[in-house]
């Protein structure tokens, strides 16, 4: 009895990064760039995937790039807007969002303010994307209800 098949399987499992099914993006338009963060629904960063900024009502990208290892991106854009950020990942994943225009910060610490806003927006997005227990239980409730309706119809047909 050798352990090699198991070791091979384990190595394969460890070597393959698997992404969960959903991709989500949060983005904001700062003074001279669109910045943002792409994450999968299990909250792992979507690293190294395609990202583009497009003007509203247009599909042709103004700027293109890839996300960093932490899932963040920064694409320089001309002033104007509003802009949309589109990310496209493996397995037919895609997400887009309006890059919210951040107000220009007054005073000397504009970059610090923008960074703080970025972090807050990322946190809000994370909370919004979280799969909640009440949603799961609600969904099961729907399924039970639909089965109940089907059973009612079946009983009427018979009776």
């Amino acid at each position: 009895m050798t352990l090699r098949p198991f070791a091979t399987t384990a190595a394969l499992l460890l070597a393959t990064t698997v992404q969960a099914h959903g991709l989500a993006v949060v983005a904001q338009h700062e003074a001279d760039a669109v910045t943002g963060l792409a994450r999968y629904t299990d909250q792992t960063p979507a690293a190294g995937i395609y990202v583009a900024v497009t003007p509203e009502n247009s599909d042709s990208p103004l700027a293109e790039g890839t996300t960093g290892a932490d899932g963040r991106f920064r694409l320089p854009v001309p002033p104007g807007g509003p802009y949309w950020a589109v990310v496209e990942g493996e397995e037919g994943h895609r997400a887009e969002t309006l890059a919210v225009q951040l107000p220009a910060a007054a005073g000397g610490n504009g970059e610090a303010t923008a960074e703080a806003l970025r972090l807050v927006r990322e946190d809000i997005a994370r909370l919004e994307q979280q799969i909640r227990l009440r949603d799961i239980i609600g969904g099961i409730g729907y399924i039970v209800g639909i089965a109940g309706i089907a059973a009612w119809f079946a009983a009427r047909r018979r009776g």
């Binding site: 460890l14 990064t17 698997v18 969960a20």
Partner: peptide
Amino acid sequence: PVGVGSVH
């Protein structure tokens, strides 16, 4: 969780 990622 499987390795560095996760599967469902």
